[in-house]
């Protein structure tokens, strides 16, 4: 039940608490408010659920019940590079399950999980609506169409290289200038 938030998440939640008044407190605001929190924090920490319940004057149980009903809401933080594999119909008939499996194998996690270094997470999504490009996978917001199992490793490597380059750049900044 108690989840330790990192300082950044802690302050984001504090900030959200102060803004809630502007969102109105009718019951119908529940889902838009949860969406706003998820948008800003990438997930719904348990405390956020209690904060929302208090704001709307309903029980935390009810908020939890609603949040767990919808696919959009998650209760654990996603990876920095969230991988979403589309398992829509068009992707399925073109072998999406094999793409998903390949991500799982390379990252050594299952769908719904996050790597221990919190770099990657894998989720399946129902359909992102790019059926003509099937099979499709998303990393972050970027859509990769016409996927093949052999492309998986390259995509993961690209994320890792980008991260290393960013780190090197920031180190250079610290030491150099």
């Amino acid at each position: 039940m108690d989840m330790v938030l990192d300082p950044q998440e802690e302050s984001a939640l504090k900030q959200i608490e102060t803004e809630l008044a502007d969102w109105g407190n009718e019951r119908s605001r529940l889902i838009p408010i949860l969406q706003m929190i998820q948008e800003r924090m990438d997930f719904l920490p348990p405390r956020a659920i209690e904060v929302v319940a208090q704001h709307l004057g309903i029980s935390a149980s009810e908020v939890f019940g609603v949040a767990t009903f919808y696919n959009q809401f998650r209760f654990t933080p996603p990876g920095k590079n969230p991988v979403k594999v589309c398992l829509g119909t068009a992707c399925h008939v073109r072998g999406a399950d094999i793409i998903l499996e390949n991500f799982e194998r390379k990252l050594e996690i299952k769908e719904g999980e996050t790597t221990t270094d919190r770099e990657f997470s894998i989720d399946r999504v129902a359909c992102v609506g790019c059926c003509a490009l099937a099979p499709v996978a998303l990393i972050g917001e970027i859509v990769h169409g016409k996927m093949a199992p052999s492309k998986v490793e390259g995509l993961i490597m690209r994320c890792q290289i980008e991260k290393e380059m960013a780190e090197r750049a920031s180190r250079k900044k610290e030491t150099g200038e």
């Binding site: 398992l87 829509g88 119909t89 068009a90 399925h92 129902a126 359909c127 609506g129 790019c130 059926c131």
Partner: peptide, 8 residues
């Protein structure tokens, strides 16, 4: 709320 996983 187009939810059919093969329609857009």
């Amino acid at each position: 709320d187009e939810g059919d996983p093969g329609a857009y």
